[in-house]
Design a protein around this nucleic acid. Structure first.
Lengths: 351, 351
DNA sequence: TTGTAGGCGTTATCAT
DNA sequence: ATGATAACGCCTACAA
């Protein structure tokens, strides 16, 4: 690891000009087979790796797309750190970027320092995918004025590309299942953090399903569990103490559903015989818990893929119309709802 | 998103030279407070974000560290895609990099195309963290001749920095627990893929524990489960069919342990009353399964952190002695081993 | 098919 | 405290 060699050395060693070396490395055209081999040989011998910075500067294209996500741990949220689905999004983004010959740069914004980080990242990439809540609206706008930005959220500022997932339709699908297939009518909703857009959307889906079934939806969630296992358990204990036993506990996410299961077990209630439970997210544990939880799968990997594809597309076509993509969710029927065996998954309704 | 403005425009607008603008943005020194404000104002008004490429070229430092990991799905392995712990490593890497003012670039190598990808990434970063099995030894060496490289594995080529986790000590700790605390003597080992270094190390730990207890360790694992849930179940069914019931089933990872649990349930055997089971990794599901699985926690997040810290250090001190760090694991006692309640976790022994 | 040379946007050295 | 002005390593017309 002495000194990184440059294109000049490769050119000299192979007896051609730097222009030719550049052409060869770009897999372009305009050189003889002999030349190509000589250049390649020289490059190999020197261990030359083209400088991404120089290349990026010359081409006005770094070949990198950024991914910004929030690290909520620093915000005093209950969340462990960043939601786990972030990992899936990252995987998807990596896959799409690599497929397109780009690389992906990731960074977590943490509180106030997030601003500087975001701008620093913006300088290093050609386009940016921003997960909900990782940036203030004005910082987002400022960056969007510089490079293509795509937001992963339920809604985006005017003119900003967006890819989202159909939270509302997914929740509506589970609830309709509970009502139509199992005949439940007294359903209770355990929400996540009050201001979480995901939680809000899912509650909207819950209400929509009740309304569609001719039932009266509540104005507010029956309880809140902060999206945590512990919170879900607490919510159920409280619910059980203050009202008659409902037919089903509809949880805003899987972790709360797992907590709910534990609380119901403690209360000597059988799931699903005495009471049904559902989750949201299709996290790994839902399959292993007893009984396996009926839930809703979100295509997080695909979310990441579509997101970088969209920014990549916009980098090329700066003035195409704004993207607004909403990915469908999928109902995953297991046993906690009362079904005996796993049914064929079906898609959540849009909207 | 018209045209990215440059340092020249900012300089002109604020009535200073580009040198001064550069100084101000670098938070350096050598300018008056008045100047600083004028420059900042101009930058803000123009929405100027310094070009990372240009900056990197001039400073000979991109401010990016790379992380290369393998995507095993393309290799026809049983693994879903890439092992899940990769996510944790990524999180750790991101955290350490961000803390140091750098960003992290991630890329998954997939089969043969991995080579080009790796070199492409190498050109964009100042240092590279490479997860085991993502690159051939010679490609690794070629890149290591160019930029600082650190390998995340059980061993590394001569002169290459390395950070690993004490697989052997961790497995030894669980097995010793099974022997010393629960008095088991007939232990059976379910291994992962035969050539997996992790699996091999863990089996070595298994043998070491038996030997230390005066028992005769087997030369080869009793069964193989390919690190999958399904494989673990199959291994146990097979074992049950061909030999007397052992005291304990020691699994090379959690997924196989979960599969083992299912197979034992089908065989009407009670865990841990009739037979004990242990896993490795401390994946989320181990807590939710019945009974909760005694396992070994690996500090994957910390692994990622230490790794980028080490490469960052080497970028500064190119010729410091080679790093060789091994992180300790932690025994997580739950119920599948026969313990009633969760004991205080203790560290796995080194080596 | 190949070479020449200017330019990409910043930083850093040397003056002033 | 500030300004000129070379690098930095590669790409890409434009020529030949």
């Amino acid at each position: 690891m002495v000194e990184r060699s440059t294109i000049y050395e490769v050119a000299r060693r192979s007896g051609v000009s730097t222009a030719t070396v550049s052409r060869v490395m770009d897999n372009g055209t305009g050189f003889s087979a002999t030349t190509r081999e000589r250049v390649r040989a020289a490059a190999r011998e020197l261990g030359w790796v083209p400088s991404g910075s120089a290349r990026g500067l010359a081409k006005r294209r770094a070949g990198i797309v950024g991914l910004l996500f929030p690290d909520l741990s620093s915000e005093g949220e209950a969340d462990a750190e960043s939601p786990l689905y972030v990992d899936q999004v990252i995987r998807g983004a990596e896959r799409a970027a690599t497929a397109a010959g780009d690389a992906v740069l990731i960074a977590a914004t943490r509180g106030a320092t997030g601003r500087d980080l975001a701008f620093s990242v913006a300088g290093k990439v050609d386009g940016l995918v921003v997960l909900a809540r990782s940036l203030s609206d004005e910082d987002l706008a400022a960056i969007a004025a510089t490079i293509p930005v795509l937001l992963l959220a339920d809604r985006s500022p005017h003119g900003v590309d967006r890819v989202g997932v159909d939270n509302r339709g997914g929740m509506r699908a589970v609830v309709e299942h509970l009502i139509a297939v199992h005949g439940h009518r007294d359903l209770v909703f355990v929400a996540g953090p009050p201001r979480s857009p995901d939680s809000i959307e899912r509650f909207a889906g819950f209400r929509a399903a009740l309304t569609a079934a001719g039932l009266t939806p509540p104005k507010k969630p029956h309880a809140q569990g902060g999206f945590t296992e512990h919170g879900g358990a607490r919510a159920v204990r409280q619910l059980l103490a203050e009202r008659e036993r409902p037919d089903a506990v509809v949880c805003g996410n899987d972790e709360m559903a797992i907590g709910a299961l534990a609380a119901l077990r403690d209360a000597r209630l059988k799931v699903p015989a005495d009471i049904a439970v559902t989750g949201f997210d299709d996290s790994t544990s839902t399959r292993h818990v007893t009984p396996p939880i009926t839930t809703v799968r979100q295509p997080m990997r695909e979310l990441g893929e579509q997101a970088v594809r969209a920014v990549l597309a916009r980098i090329v076509a700066r003035d195409a119309p704004t993207h607004q993509i909403v990915l469908p969710t999928e109902l995953v029927v297991r046993r906690s709802c009362g079904c005996r065996s796993t049914a064929t998954p079906r898609r959540g309704k849009q909207g």
